[in-house]
Design a protein around this nucleic acid. Structure first.
Lengths: 347, 347
DNA sequence: CTGAAAGCGCTTACAG
DNA sequence: CTGAAAGCGCTTACAG
């Protein structure tokens, strides 16, 4: 691979001059000289060494994105949004699937730090894990000292996201929509207790249920994982517990998909006997049967704005947090409750 | 950020010694010295600079993965497989969504080249675009000269994939399964003509249809895009053309999902009136209604083996191509053809 | 407008 | 087992 030295030699100029025409677009260089350097670069198939440049600047044009799992459509959508904007600015994006393991998350952040990534974006929620968060905080402080930008798209241990969504309000809106349909006993599949985002969603559910004077039986709230298997298991738990309910509101779409599937296996009609609602509006939500009622989050836009936020941080700006609106989307998995008796477990 | 120089000073040794304990695990250093260096590193929160190391080695522990779109479950699954193995080896993975634009693909490869990525894995198929492929070839040659590994997981302009699947055989197996169900007139949604992988799948269809003596009317094969919208449009085209058919075999799952959806909108029962089969077995294929019959590709494993292949290339090994088997999975979108007259367009 | 030179933080022959 | 020193390929004051 040709280096700037060889380009300079071939063009008959100093490396300083060659470097200026290759990288510093605005530096004054005479037209003739500039052209000779450009010709030499072309002839030698010169591609600048980003590592050398990065070593010099102590930063490279790379964004790390920490996700739970790139397979989860929620995250691939956000990553795509980041990539859209990053590509425009010549940034490359590194995806890191942590599987929600704080240890893996820390090890990725350390790697990103060692690469002097210009920014790291936490696409998912933080976890309540004091020991690990301490190490995380140390790495983030190190990166910030070095001028890197840190952006969160969900609530986390160190505060509110720079770019996010009002989770509690979103869930509350769905609960209200369900109540409007006539549901008075709404179960809630809550997601992992350790995730801050799940806590916010649960808070939204509790607030709405209280505000609307709906049923609050203990067994109505089921802690779960955040995947579709968890949705299926929660349905079983709900039925076994004996609580009565006519609707299931889920903390994310994957749970809702799993719940719908399990209900189908059990011969319970959705939405005839039970309504099911999701949250996030991942792309599959619109193509399952029945099509899922859910709360739409502007996932791709969250990614775009998250990157834009990082770039402006790098430019030294101080920015106010951005909160995007959510929207209830009623499709085919919700309906008024059955006229007869509500769904009831067999405890 | 502390550098190796500061660690060395604090430990009272030369930078050479400090560097050896930090990076060269097997280099002989006396126990006492080693411990003092380790202590200093810890105290200073030292994180090695991967850029400096990479500049030295002319290579950094990063894999670039070129995908069509990270949103497409086919690709996110492959990427996850790559990441699984890469993380173990301390590699970071950069995802590049080209949207199947050769221009974007080239610009990503150039960026990866400038970063001195240790490897680039092409997860998707190559495109027949001579002008762009020339530039691509130049970049890849440059990277190879520099010792980088290049791996393809699908057919491409420069030959067969290092790790892949027998696409033609996979489609042929599905056509045979459909024939076994009793279908004699099977339409084929072929995907983009410019993609090598689509050509292989089409070849598999033609071969099977010929071998089995099935209907070969001209209108039976419909070129399409590779997304679900394309599947919907193809159904309209098929119906308008007037060909008769009882099954639709699709070059990928997204097409099949779109076809099923469009058929549903038109009130045509799947699989009662028409059978629909996909290809790839992306994760949603199992949760749609009806559940999609398809051909399973070991996507995640393809990713894992692809990375393993890259690592062994980096180690200087010469490896034979690996071809993974595919498997027909019959679910609920296929059935014997209706006893009455076959589906027929209204041309 | 142009160049000589130092330096970013490592690695690695080479010498001891 | 340890260290002095050169070099990877750029960028950037500084001087002219």
């Amino acid at each position: 691979m040709a280096s700037i030295t060889e380009v300079a030699r071939q063009a008959g100029v100093s490396t300083a001059t060659a470097a200026r025409v290759m990288a510093a677009a605005d530096y004054p260089v005479s037209e003739g000289t500039r052209q000779r350097v450009l010709d030499a670069a072309l002839a030698l198939d010169y591609v600048p060494n980003a590592l050398a440049r990065g070593l010099q600047k102590s930063r490279i044009a790379v964004v790390g994105v920490i996700v739970h799992d790139i397979i989860d459509p929620y995250f691939s959508e956000v990553v795509r949004g980041i990539e859209d904007v990053a590509a425009t600015d010549g940034y490359l994006v590194i995806t890191c699937s942590s599987d929600r393991s704080p240890a893996r998350e820390n090890s990725y952040v350390r790697l990103l730090r060692s690469m002097r990534a210009a920014a790291v974006i936490f696409a998912g929620s933080g976890m309540d894990d004091p020991a690990r968060n301490e190490e995380l905080a140390r790495h983030l402080a190190g990166m910030r000292d070095n001028g890197a930008a840190i952006v969160h798209l969900s609530p986390h241990a160190f505060g509110e996201p720079e770019v996010g969504v009002d989770n509690a309000a979103g869930i509350a809106a769905m609960v209200a929509a369900l109540a409007t349909l006539g549901h008075g006993r709404i179960a809630f599949l809550a997601g992992p207790t350790a995730l801050y985002v799940a806590r916010e969603r649960l808070a939204g559910y509790r607030r709405a249920v209280a505000d609307l004077g709906l049923g609050t039986d203990r067994g109505l709230v089921v802690p779960t994982t955040f995947d579709s298997e968890g949705g299926g298991r929660a349905v079983d738990r709900l039925l076994a517990s004996g609580v009565s309910f006519t609707a299931i509101c889920c903390a994310n779409d994957l749970l809702a998909l799993g719940a719908v599937r399990r209900l189908g296996e059990l011969g319970i009609d959705v939405p005839g006997s039970v309504s099911v609602a999701g949250f996030d509006d991942i792309s599959v939500a619109a193509i399952t049967a029945p099509k899922l009622s859910t709360v739409r989050l502007p996932l791709r836009e969250l990614g775009r704005r998250g990157f834009a936020h990082a770039v402006r941080q790098l430019a030294g700006e101080t920015l106010a947090p951005e909160v995007f609106p959510t929207e209830v989307v009623l499709r085919d998995s919700t309906a008024p409750p059955p006229a007869a008796s509500p769904m009831k477990g067999t405890a």
